[in-house]
Amino acid sequence: MMQEKPPQGKAVCWTLRLWSVAVISMLLLSVCFIASCKVTYQFMMDTPNRRLSKLHTYHSNLTCFSEGTMVSDKVWSCCPKDWKPFGSHCYFISTDLEASWNKSKEKCSHMGAHLVVIHSQEEQDFITGILKTDAGYFIGLLDAGDRQWQWIDQTPYKKSATFWHKGEPSNDYEKCVIINHRKSIGWGWNDIDCSDKENSVCQMKKIYL
């Protein structure tokens, strides 16, 4: 006995449903690619990216943003969760425990980062825009001796791209630097004793997927 074939109308209806689901899915993906999308990336223990594997020691997940205007140009740039992205770097404001410059450096290092290094007015403005005006924050700049200022990542110190308060640096024994806010003057850099306890700003390069 021959099996009866399903009515043609039902088959057409089922096919249309499948196509509708496929088209809607493609549209949603297209919108996500065209817009600037944000996703949370959970670390995989078997990831082949060495830096991702290393960061997994310090951070449980990343927040990723799509970059580029065309679908073919899309790249995912990522920062650890709760870090702020700017340019090619991620920034973390440490306010949970004030510490000396050396302790602040260690805290950043334990998160796979270093104290912030600032090389432009745009970066300075971004950082000060996320800080509290009633606190000071250590940055990765110190006096290596004889007032020879040195960045923690060994990049060149350029006087043309510094943001000292007027009259600073002021004392030879103050060898570490903070960003702080002064009333009627605004944000700037101030040299202080390295043993003073302050908040800090950590920095790391973005992860690209």
Rank of each mutant, 00 (worst) to 15 (best):
M2A: 13
M2Q: 13
M2C: 12
E4M: 07
E4L: 11
P6H: 02
Q8K: 09
K10L: 11
K10E: 08
L16P: 01
M26L: 14
M26H: 06
S30K: 04
S30P: 00
A35T: 14
T40M: 10
Q42P: 00
M45N: 11
D46I: 05
D46H: 06
R50G: 01
S53H: 09
N61G: 09
L62S: 06
C64K: 03
S66P: 04
V75K: 15
V75L: 13
C78M: 07
K81G: 01
W83Q: 07
K84E: 15
K84V: 14
F86C: 03
F86G: 03
G87S: 13
S88L: 13
S88E: 15
C90R: 05
S94G: 14
S100H: 09
W101Y: 15
W101G: 07
N102Y: 12
N102Q: 13
K105D: 14
G112N: 04
G112Y: 04
A113I: 03
L115Y: 02
V116I: 12
Q121C: 01
E122V: 10
E123H: 14
E123M: 15
F126H: 10
T128S: 03
I130A: 01
I130T: 02
T133D: 05
G136L: 01
G136V: 02
F138A: 05
I139Q: 02
L141T: 02
L142P: 00
D143L: 04
D143E: 06
G145D: 04
D146Y: 05
Q148M: 07
I152L: 11
S160N: 10
W164N: 04
H165T: 07
P169E: 06
Y173G: 00
C176L: 02
V177I: 14
H181F: 15
G186V: 08
G186M: 09
G188W: 11
E198F: 04
S200D: 06
S200N: 07
V201E: 06
Q203E: 15
M204S: 13
K206N: 13
